[in-house]
């Protein structure tokens, strides 16, 4: 069960990568990502969209798989900038992982 935290998207503003709500879940980023790993980065972006911060902290390790090649950001049809969102999530996790 994933509990939704209403203010999460706003909290993310200070970490950068606040474009996740532009995403309409098409999956282009996951298809183009060279990691080919379990819907990465789409799933992470979805967790951010929802405000499922527990899920993000639980799966934080996945964020560090990202090579920052930029393919997802270049192909995103909504300019949601997934690469930048992943970077922002890394900053968030670094700032918060001890608290959880």
């Amino acid at each position: 069960m994933t509990l939704i935290h209403h203010d999460f998207a706003d909290q993310m503003d200070r970490f950068g990568g606040n474009t996740a709500l532009e995403c309409f879940n098409c999956g282009t980023c996951a298809a183009i990502c060279p990691l080919i790993y379990e819907h990465f980065p789409r799933k992470m972006i979805r967790y951010l969209q929802l405000g499922a911060k527990d899920r993000i902290l639980e799966n934080a390790k996945e964020l560090w798989r990202c090579l920052h090649c930029g393919l997802c950001s270049r192909t995103c049809p909504r300019e949601a900038d997934p690469g930048e969102v992943i970077l922002g999530l890394k900053r968030y996790v670094v700032a918060n992982w001890r608290k959880s």
């Binding site: 069960m1 994933t2 509990l3 939704i4 209403h6 879940n25 819907h39 799933k43 979805r46 967790y47 929802l50 499922a52």
Partner: peptide, 16 residues
């Protein structure tokens, strides 16, 4: 509100 969210790959979400 509990829902099985297709966009989160079928995970159950709870929205207060």
């Amino acid at each position: 509100i509990k829902a099985k969210d297709i966009l989160t790959f079928g995970e159950e979400v709870e929205v207060p």
